[in-house]
């Protein structure tokens, strides 16, 4: 059953006189009770996709296509309708909690504000709910009167999780929830998110560049490169049988696999190469790759690849 369906999503914006095609015809489906990992390098447009789903992009960004949440196209919603969907049905954990939390409000205030605004709760009731949320993410509710600077990085991330989950959303988007954390803290945060998502029957879109984290958490993985999804498959298939040359290179570059290098740089989103966007760095290049742009095609059940080497592309 699909919970969120993205069809032909395009996100363009202008920067320094150039059109940046941050997302170029993205097709993605998030199923009920599923953890979907979105992995890709810095600047491939994965955070922008996350923000586009929750409607957190600035006004001058052009968005095309469809994002359907439970049979409702949220791109066509009014500001008000969107506000209701955001938070209540789709929660987001932003990256960099130090910047996302307001330094002059106590964390209790910041969480209870969500209840008071979205559910018109009274002060007392909101505070009780806040205490429950904090307990759930492993923070002593007594600390709700403290301010963000009194919390460590991992604790702040827990606060962010509590805020993302406050309204029991059906879908949670976590944007690099483990960035900048120590290995031990990282593991704890991963466990916490997994546990909560499974207990509450939610779906999770995990945006990360850390393949190790994705491996531990996800059911399926979508790999993004230069604003496009180039491969979607189950975690098992991705790890054991990666198909797209980029995915293969990415996995081979991990320390465990010997840090094998791939030459070249990721292309800029304002002037991607013609044809397949990976062709300048690809090991398995064929003639077609230079001129024709491959489509995302299903090669076997549950696996789709954007590459001419597979299927009838």
């Amino acid at each position: 059953m699909s919970l969120l369906k993205i069809q032909d999503l395009k996100v363009y914006f202008n920067a320094r006189g150039k059109t940046v095609k941050a997302n170029n015809s993205i097709d993605l489906e998030i199923r009920e009770n599923e953890i979907l990992g979105l992995i890709g390098e810095t600047g491939c447009g994965k955070s922008i996709l996350g923000r586009a789903i929750v409607g957190l992009l600035p006004d001058n960004v052009k968005i095309g296509g469809k994002i359907v949440y439970r049979s409702e196209d949220i791109l066509n919603l009014s500001e008000n309708g969107l506000r209701k969907i955001r938070g209540k049905n789709i929660g987001i954990i932003l990256q960099n909690p130090s910047a996302a939390l307001n330094p002059v409000l106590s964390i209790g205030n910041q969480i209870s504000e969500i209840y008071r605004y979205h559910e018109n709760m009274g002060k007392k009731e909101a505070r009780i709910r806040t205490a429950k949320m904090l307990e759930m993410v492993g923070i002593d509710p007594k600390r709700m009167h403290e301010y963000p600077h009194q919390f460590s990085g991992g604790m702040k991330q827990r606060v962010m999780i509590a805020m993302g989950l406050a309204l029991n959303p059906g879908l949670l988007i976590a944007d690099e929830p483990t960035k900048g954390l120590d290995p031990t803290t990282k593991d704890k945060i991963i466990d916490l998110i997994c546990e909560l998502v499974i207990n509450k029957n939610m779906s999770l879109l995990l945006i990360t560049h850390d393949i190790g984290v994705a491996e531990k958490m996800c059911d399926r993985i979508a790999v993004m490169y230069a604003g496009e999804i180039i491969e979607i498959a189950t975690i098992k298939n991705i790890l054991s049988n990666p198909q797209h040359p980029y995915t293969q290179d990415l996995l081979n570059s991990l320390p465990k696999k010997g840090l094998n290098q791939t030459a070249g740089e990721s292309p800029s989103l304002s002037s991607p190469p013609a044809g397949c966007r990976f062709h300048p760095r690809c090991r398995c290049i064929i003639g077609k790759c230079l001129k024709t742009h491959p489509q995302l095609m299903e090669t076997e059940k549950g696996t789709s690849v954007r590459c001419f080497l597979y299927g009838n592309n």
Partner: peptide, 12 residues
């Protein structure tokens, strides 16, 4: 976050 700031600044 930076992307957002950027956009807003360009508007400004």
């Amino acid at each position: 976050m930076k992307i957002l700031n950027n956009e807003i600044n360009i508007l400004k």
